[in-house]
Simulated assay, not measured.
Amino acid sequence: MADKRYGMLFDSNRCIGCQSCSVACRAENKVPDDVYRLQVRIEGPKGEYPQLVMDFERHSCVMCENAPCVSVCPTGASYVNQDGVNMVDSQKCVGCKYCINACPYQARFINPVTGAADKCTFCYENRVQKGEKPACASICPTGALIFGDLNDPNSEIRQALRQNTVKPKEHLGTNPKLYIVPNKRGGER
């Protein structure tokens, strides 16, 4: 078992849709225009006045433990590193798009600059390895993103997981390491 097992919690009740996380991701990872590693999708308003609500949904790699993108990669470019982070080795990637087609979360793309598959990596190589949080989690003004080691019972993420959380498309058996606190604002919908 890995020494660390990184994961993230997205609290949709705290998200205000400001896109700071997406902008920070783009800047930190030099993401080309017209593609993204992270996006906050906004739906709404929903409900009836005065009980209107906006829904915010994080769209990025969910760091599956049973990652379909890894198992279909013919070159080994898609892999899970020692800390449980799903990565892409752009030097090994041949751009076949198998991983893109296999991802049930539509979280991968071909980087138009490198020609290789690309996606969120929790800023592993440029931040997490140095003991820093991913760019998105470090910039979030409302604390909607909590990142940490799922193997550490004292980590902030483990404490936060005591809330009622869900995993995206959990029924697929991919075992994502992105947890979501469902939106409770606006009452029953």
Score class of each variant (00 low, 15 high):
Tyr98Glu: 12
Tyr6Gln: 05
Val166Tyr: 00
Ile100Arg: 04
Ala116Ile: 13
Val88Met: 08
Leu145Ile: 05
Leu38Asn: 03
Tyr179Val: 04
Asn126Ile: 00
Val80Asp: 13
Met63Phe: 07
Ala144Thr: 07
Gln91Val: 05
Val23Glu: 13
Glu170Asp: 15
Leu172Ala: 02
Ile16Leu: 00
Leu38Pro: 01
Asn29Met: 09
Lys46Met: 15
Val80Met: 15
Gln39Phe: 10
Asp3Ile: 07
Val88Thr: 11
Ser12Glu: 14
Asp3Pro: 00
Ala67Pro: 08
Phe56Thr: 05
Leu161Asn: 05
Ile100Lys: 10
Arg26Leu: 02
Pro45His: 03
Met63Trp: 01
Asn164Pro: 02
Asp152Trp: 06
Phe109His: 13
Lys97Glu: 15
Cys18Tyr: 02
Met54Phe: 15
Met87Thr: 01
Lys46Phe: 15
Val94Met: 10
Gln91Met: 06
Leu161Phe: 00
Lys46His: 15
Gln51Met: 05
Gly76Leu: 01
Lys177Tyr: 02
Ile42Gln: 12
Asn81Arg: 15
Val72Arg: 02
Arg37Phe: 07
Val53Glu: 15
Asn154Trp: 02
Leu178Arg: 00
Arg189Ile: 04
Pro182Phe: 08
Pro153Phe: 00
Gln82Ala: 07
Arg37Asp: 12
Tyr98Leu: 10
Ala144Arg: 08
Lys167Leu: 07
Tyr105Leu: 12
